[in-house]
């Protein structure tokens, strides 16, 4: 009993350690950041909004009049105490299709959810397959033993001729 629980721990310890590292890293990445200054918030927001009159440039790096107006609006709204979501919603209400990050609702949910679903399905598939390959996963039946014995007792086929012909098969210990 104690030997099996020890080997179980040995198998699971790396996985547990990896899970702990991932959770801690995600927690630090999510909650450990210092509160951004209003200027940092404005910059971050400007990077998630597309310049309304360009094809694929963020407001943060564009100097068109519409981008300048959006940057000014972001600063004013931050000063007025609006949340990032409120600001993004307002810009999207004026300039549809300018949010570079898809929304977390409606059709946009697919963009966020599908990769996660694929990863989960892929990992689950791998786990199922690897479990099937585990030694001892399938018990040897008497039928299997008979098959092996029959094969070992079968007459040896005549050796092929020529210099590259393999030597007589050597019976390996079972």
């Amino acid at each position: 009993m104690s030997t099996s629980s020890k080997s179980g721990l040995r198998v699971w310890a790396p996985w547990i350690a990896m899970a702990v590292v991932i959770v801690v890293a995600l927690a630090i990445g999510t909650f450990g950041q210092p509160e951004p200054t209003p200027e940092q918030r404005a910059q971050n927001l400007a990077e998630t909004i597309r310049c309304p009159s360009c094809k694929s440039q963020a407001v943060a790096s564009s100097d068109t009049p519409s981008s300048q107006a959006v940057r000014l609006l972001i600063r004013e709204r931050i000063k007025a105490g609006d949340s990032d979501e409120q600001i993004r919603d307002y810009v999207a209400s004026r300039y549809p299709q300018t949010l570079l990050e898809p929304p977390g609702n409606g059709f946009g949910t697919l963009v966020w959810a599908l990769p996660v679903i694929f990863v989960i399905v892929a990992v689950a598939g791998l786990v199922v397959r690897f479990r099937a390959y585990r030694p001892g996963g399938r018990a040897v039946t008497q039928e299997d033993r008979d098959l092996v014995a029959e094969a070992l007792e079968a007459p040896v086929p005549p050796a092929a001729e020529g210099p590259d012909a393999p030597a007589d098969p050597v019976e390996e210990p079972v």
């Binding site: 009049p65 519409s66 300048q68 107006a69 959006v70 000014l72 609006l73 004026r94 300039y95």
Partner: peptide
């Protein structure tokens, strides 16, 4: 242009 506000 009111600093672009009107157009926005």
């Amino acid at each position: 242009s009111d600093d672009g506000r009107t157009a926005l």
